[in-house]
Amino acid sequence: MAEAFKLLINPDTVAHTARHLRRAWRGFDAERFSAIALEGQDGLEFKARAHRLADALQATLPADFDRACGVLEAALAPPLALDADGEPVGLQGLPPQGVGGWALWGAGEWVARAGLDEPERALLCLRELTQRFTAEFAIRPFIARRPELVFPLLSRWTGDASAHVRRLVSEGSRPRLPWGLRLQALVADPAPTLPLLRALQNDASAYVRRSVANHLNDIAKDHPERVADWVREHRVGADAAREALLRHASRGLIKAGHAPTLAAWGLRHGFDGEATLRIAPATVAVGGQVRLQATLRSRARTAQSLVVDYAVHHVKANGSASPKVFKGWKIELAPDESRELDKAHSLREVTTRRLYPGRHRVELLVNGVAVAAAAFDLRP
């Protein structure tokens, strides 16, 4: 999986980028650009490949930053199209009309390096890049260094005609964006981004709304009460799209059993009843799967709204365990009702998680509280 990811920037990507930069500027040294971008590429992971591509741009674009941005912008492919739900299409592959896709991660890195002293021009360039890929990583150094300049611009961009640009407003300013520079000022106080999220949470594009939800989930890690208050306030009169956004935004708090958030959703903290959890098979190899079978029996005199998740305590390389919560079910349990729940859990490795052999404990969580547990043994 990691091998395939790093190959998103490859010799074809570099050659394609060089060709279109040469089309945009006849004086572009395509050979030197390619030599720098490809030096040692086989031994580099994805992020290092993107940084090497930025090195190549820095060495071969005009020294004048405004002129260099003009060359890059002239070489770009048309903006990515959006489907009926406002989701981008055509991100994979090399667009024949110009530079686009994964090569622009490196282009964004170049803008962030070369444009810090010319932020107005750099931000205009990032507005163009984000419509062909994303500029969520490249904009973060500007937010950290020049917030007084960037936030008024982001406020204007909440009304931009492009969903790509509107998404950048939310995604680029997330306090804890994975892979991105952590914005410590916003981790401490997210107030500057809240008006932006308020303006975007009813956006017509699901692409934008999902970013708003993820941004709120970031805030919840440091300021759970603020997100609980946000959910309580904005559920009033919410349509289905905003309701889905708010639920996605509060998913971490619901899994954690955060009482104010549960109350905002009309969920009672805890579970009035009995629960059991069974796992089969008892021993499984990496790459296989186990079945989780849970039984909930109500003792309550009224119906209970329940969010049922489960936490797998993954064994780490040093033998300790670290829990990861997975989504399960959302149910209404009638008085005295008994409900059987069944789910397959995959044990295939993914890019972000390596699996180690050992005994894995699984907890059944109802409204964020562990009510039952079982275990399975994972072998190589």
Rank of each mutant, 00 (worst) to 15 (best):
F46Q: 00
V307G: 06
V150G: 04
V350G: 01
L53Y: 08
A135D: 02
L94F: 13
R174W: 00
T60A: 03
R26D: 14
R127Y: 09
A24T: 03
T261A: 09
G86A: 14
L94I: 05
K327W: 07
A122V: 07
A191V: 12
N367A: 10
H269A: 11
L245E: 09
P192A: 05
E3N: 14
H313C: 03
S173T: 11
L91Y: 09
E349Y: 14
R127T: 14
D229W: 05
L7T: 13
G43S: 06
E243N: 11
V165N: 12
A84D: 13
W329F: 15
L126G: 03
A112M: 11
G93M: 06
P380L: 13
R226G: 10
A280G: 02
R32F: 04
V369P: 00
P79D: 13
R22I: 06
V111W: 00
R146N: 12
P119N: 05
V312T: 01
E136T: 04
E73M: 05
T302P: 04
L57S: 08
A285E: 14
A285R: 15
H360E: 07
G358Q: 13
L333H: 09
Q201C: 08
A18K: 09
A56K: 10
L61W: 02
A35Q: 11
T60K: 01
L378K: 12
S205N: 09
V165S: 06
V369F: 03
V212T: 05
A204L: 09
V307H: 15
R379T: 15
A204H: 14
K6I: 12
I279Q: 01
L94K: 06
S250F: 11
P178W: 04
V231Y: 01
N214E: 10
L44V: 01
D342M: 00
G98I: 09
L126V: 09
V111H: 05
D377A: 10
G287D: 08
D12V: 13
G328T: 05
D377W: 10
A317G: 03
A18G: 15
T60Y: 10
A311I: 09
R32M: 03
R167E: 05
G86V: 04
R354M: 00
E39S: 14
R235M: 13
T60R: 00
H258T: 13
W105S: 14
A259N: 01
I139V: 15
A199G: 10
P357S: 06
P11L: 02
A228Y: 02
A74Q: 09
D336C: 08
R348L: 14
Q131I: 02
V150C: 02
L72V: 15
S211L: 06
